[in-house]
Computed example of a mutant assay.
Amino acid sequence: MGFVKEFKDFAVKGNVIDLAVGVIIGGAFNKITSSLVNDVVMPPIGMLLGKVDFTNLFITLGSEEYNTLAEAKDAGAATINYGVFINNIIQFLITALVIFIVIRQINRMKRKEEQASTQPTNKECPYCITTIPLKATKCPNCTADINTGM
């Protein structure tokens, strides 16, 4: 009975929903970064390197030669697709950079919240030594006027 209750608590408290949303957003983000790498980043790099299309950089493991990776795949040839691998490395680096920036910003916001929550909200009455609100100008215990500069 404890396992079922624990699973129900896990599923109902939003952990599963948060995980599902994260996976869905991650899939969409993957499509965006793939497009960024393949359609925006790699074409200028290919032009700078002499009009090289990285997706067509491959080595055929047989004796036949093919002009494009698509031709080699259609023929059923075994290939080492190092151009696609380079695209995937660049895509990974961009994804890692974006995730790093997002996590960094989240950590900065958390630190600001922690600093704000550690600010004192009370002070001590100099006359009766009781704790009073920071904004108090008169002690509710001894009725002394408190200097607001404290």
Rank of each mutant, 00 (worst) to 15 (best):
I103W: 08
D53V: 14
V4Q: 11
M47L: 02
I32C: 07
T60G: 14
I106E: 06
V98C: 14
V98Y: 06
Y66A: 03
I101E: 00
R108T: 11
L48Q: 07
I90H: 10
G26P: 05
I17R: 15
L57F: 02
K5E: 15
N81I: 04
L49D: 11
I32Q: 05
T143D: 13
A28N: 04
L93Y: 11
M150L: 10
N38Y: 12
A144P: 00
I45M: 04
P43V: 01
C128F: 07
T137Y: 10
V4D: 03
E65F: 04
I24A: 12
T130L: 01
F85T: 14
K31Q: 13
C125K: 03
T148M: 07
K138A: 10
T68V: 05
G14R: 04
K51L: 08
I106W: 05
S63V: 09
F100P: 01
M42F: 02
V102G: 00
N56A: 09
L19N: 08
L36V: 07
R108V: 05
Q105R: 04
T68L: 10
F85E: 09
K31L: 14
E6V: 06
A78T: 13
V102Y: 02
I17E: 06
P43W: 00
P120E: 00
V98N: 12
T148W: 09
A144E: 15
N38K: 15
F7S: 03
F85L: 15
G149D: 15
L93S: 12
V37G: 01
I132G: 02
I94F: 06
K13R: 13
F3G: 03
N15A: 15
R104C: 11
A116F: 04
I99D: 02
I101P: 00
N122V: 14
V98T: 12
R108L: 07
N141D: 10
A20E: 09
V4L: 15
I90E: 07
V4Y: 10
A75R: 03
K5W: 09
I132D: 09
R111F: 05
S34Q: 05
N87A: 06
I25L: 02
T55W: 07
M109L: 11
T60S: 14
N15M: 14
T148I: 09
S117E: 12
A28C: 11
E64I: 06
F100S: 02
S35Y: 10
Q105Y: 01
L61H: 08
N122Q: 15
G27L: 13
V21Y: 13
I17T: 14
Y66L: 10
T131V: 11
L49N: 09
Q105N: 05
L19G: 14
N141M: 00
G62D: 02
A144L: 05
V52H: 02
K112G: 03
C142F: 11
K123A: 06
D39R: 10
G76Y: 11
N30L: 07
T79S: 13
V16W: 11
P44H: 10
I25E: 00
I99E: 01
V37C: 01
V16M: 14
N87W: 03
